Computed example of a mutant assay.
Amino acid sequence: MACRCLNCIVPPHMLRRLLDCREESVRQAALATLLATERLRGARMVRALGGATPGAPAGGRRTVYDCRNATDLSLAVIARTEEQPDTTDTAVNHAFDGLGATRDFYATVLSRDSIDDKGMRLDGYVHRGTKYNNAFWDGQEMVFGDGDGVIFTNFTGSLDVIGHELTHGVTQFVAGLEYHDQPGALNESISDVFGSLVKQWKNGQAADQADWLIGPDIFTPDVAGDALRSMKAPGTAYDDPRLGKDPQPADMAHYVKLPNTDEGDNGGVHINSGIPNRAFYLTATGIGGNAWEAPGHIWYEALAASNPKTEFQDFADTTYTKATQLHGTGSPAQQAVLDAWAQVGIRISSAVIAGSDGDRPPGDDGGRSFAELSRQIAGLSEAVGALAGAVAKIRP
């Protein structure tokens, strides 16, 4: 599926806020980033008219290019390939390692062969432009800016950012979620979920050990904030005089209605993504253990069952169905999904609950063994026999 959007890690509302910053260098960097992003979005839409061109299968082969502060990717030079060792450029090494960790996560955990499941090569471009405050997936490759050095540092520094952006590519090929309103917010949330899972898997962190932050390494120490977003507590990631306060809602009662325009963040795709983000966090901690196992598989299967127009309610219902299919009726996973969505203000549809009661994996008895079922049947037979005897005694 061809995606005609440009998926950037830093939302436009943050960059626009920086246009009012007192520091001239920050204002200029934010303005240049916004203008460059608009030009890139236009170029991406033109290129997408010809369809997606992932290239020949390459087993997820990585190549990192150095833009040398140019904005034309065709002028970039190869900085590292699979045959080369570490370089002296930290950004190159971080990008190369991040591409590899994300590729390996999808292969090992979800049996997916690169972004398109057909071995798509992974190209990354570092040092794009001067003081470029963003990183993005444009439908074919990853591009990283160096940041302005005042608010943002180099964007290759956060593994979850790389996982987030490459997951936009996965969503592009799996479900093609439209990039506006609820489908767009779900698109952003899926990227946050799997970006975080890549980091947790790489670091060997269980759900209760993870920070559940997106982009904790891209702010400079001078910024009053932990990260771009918090999946655990949407709305608390940052509160800085220059950036403002994190606007993400944590539940549907605070859903933000915005116009489907660039200024409105395409209907709030980076803002309302906090709601399904928190639902995943609650599911993962409710189940316990490693979030990339049961919770990650449930979300991945739900993504595979989605379509371009899938909204929050649709996705919530599908995660419940997938939890039932994968783990059984009455399972802790099914209950965790049900409780998590309820806590963010989305109740699983009653028809879905009723239809899922008998929807178990082949050979699954909902957690009851054959011996247990036999004992229950025997007990019921005894009770019926006793009742029949009692009835016989009172008959005239």
Results as ranks from 00 to 15, higher is better:
residue 174 V to L: 05
residue 282 L to R: 05
residue 246 D to P: 01
residue 216 P to M: 11
residue 147 G to W: 05
residue 282 L to M: 07
residue 9 I to Q: 01
residue 277 N to W: 01
residue 102 T to C: 13
residue 312 F to Y: 15
residue 365 D to E: 13
residue 272 N to S: 08
residue 369 S to M: 05
residue 378 A to K: 03
residue 297 H to S: 08
residue 93 N to P: 05
residue 222 D to K: 14
residue 50 G to Y: 01
residue 309 K to C: 01
residue 246 D to H: 02
residue 29 A to P: 03
residue 288 G to R: 03
residue 141 E to D: 08
residue 363 G to Y: 06
residue 380 L to Y: 09
residue 331 S to I: 12
residue 107 A to E: 12
residue 372 E to M: 08
residue 299 W to L: 14
residue 379 G to H: 07
residue 179 Y to N: 06
residue 25 S to F: 05
residue 349 S to V: 07
residue 336 A to P: 08
residue 215 G to S: 14
residue 103 R to H: 15
residue 280 F to V: 04
residue 298 I to F: 02
residue 90 T to H: 07
residue 270 H to D: 12
residue 351 A to E: 15
residue 163 G to Q: 06
residue 136 F to V: 08
residue 380 L to D: 12
residue 256 V to R: 12
residue 389 G to T: 11
residue 89 D to E: 09
residue 219 F to N: 09
residue 57 P to D: 12
residue 323 A to H: 02
residue 287 I to R: 12
residue 330 G to C: 03
residue 126 V to A: 04
residue 102 T to L: 10
residue 167 T to C: 04
residue 365 D to F: 14
residue 110 L to V: 04
residue 169 G to W: 07
residue 70 A to E: 13
residue 183 P to M: 11
residue 10 V to L: 09
residue 152 F to A: 03
residue 213 L to C: 06
residue 383 A to M: 10
residue 106 Y to I: 06
residue 179 Y to H: 10
residue 35 L to N: 10
residue 131 K to P: 00
residue 381 S to W: 10
residue 357 D to S: 12
residue 239 D to M: 06
residue 224 A to E: 13
residue 285 T to K: 00
residue 58 A to D: 08
residue 144 F to K: 00
residue 367 G to T: 09
residue 93 N to C: 07
residue 222 D to I: 09
residue 160 D to E: 14
residue 4 R to E: 12
residue 126 V to P: 01
residue 10 V to F: 06
residue 135 A to P: 09
residue 385 G to D: 14
residue 388 A to S: 11
residue 53 T to K: 02
residue 255 Y to D: 03
residue 5 C to T: 08
residue 322 K to W: 10
residue 115 I to N: 01
residue 150 V to K: 13
residue 200 Q to T: 03
residue 83 E to M: 05
residue 162 I to R: 01
residue 382 E to Q: 13
residue 131 K to Q: 11
residue 298 I to T: 11
residue 225 G to R: 02
residue 154 N to M: 02
residue 246 D to R: 00
